[in-house]
């Protein structure tokens, strides 16, 4: 492949992209406790996809990143977000019906400065995960499509 980068870039990418994806999911999952959230964590995970596509080209990552699966994940995230907004419709749209209820994500938070409990927040962690999946898949689709489109443009110009 003539689009591949040098050996140094390939080795560093192979070592590092898993850690970037895991850090993105950490930021998504702890969005209601630490700085960050769905959008930021999704952008971090999508930057790992961008690193892979820049290094190996869109043909080299064909087995790992599939455009159909990414668009399915994107639609799933958006539908999950809107569904959990509609579930609170007994009171208002976007009502946080799971907060302080004792069930899933239902513990009440300690008031004041504290290290935080992961099982709090009501619908906020679920919406974080939904928006995180949506942003991750959307930016991945944008990167993949733009890479393929730029190669097509180059072929058309050179012919």
């Amino acid at each position: 492949m003539k689009n591949e980068m040098s050996r140094i870039v390939r080795t560093v990418t192979t070592l590092i992209y898993g850690f970037i994806i895991v850090y993105g999911f950490y930021v998504i999952a702890h969005g209601h406790l630490t700085p960050g959230g769905g959008f930021q964590g999704g952008a971090i995970a999508a930057s790992a996809f961008a690193l892979l596509v820049v290094t190996y080209g869109d043909q080299g990552v064909k087995d790992f990143l599939k455009k159909d699966i990414l668009s399915l994940v994107e639609s799933t995230g958006l539908v999950l977000f809107i569904a959990f907004a509609f579930f609170g419709l007994g009171v208002t749209f976007f009502y946080n019906f799971m907060a302080n209820s004792g069930g899933l994500f239902g513990n009440s938070a300690i008031i004041g400065i504290n290290p935080g409990d992961l099982n709090t927040g009501g619908t906020i962690p679920i919406m974080n995960i939904a928006v995180g999946l949506e942003v991750l898949a959307a930016l991945g689709v944008i990167i993949l499509t733009m890479s393929a489109g730029s190669k097509n443009t180059k072929k058309k110009e050179n012919s």
Binding site: G36, F39, A46, S47, V53
Partner: peptide, 18 residues
């Protein structure tokens, strides 16, 4: 810090890839 994470992810990584 929220805006800082978004800016570092979008501005420094994805824009440069495109």
């Amino acid at each position: 810090p929220d805006v800082a994470i978004a800016e570092a992810g979008i501005g420094a990584a994805l824009t440069m890839a495109i």
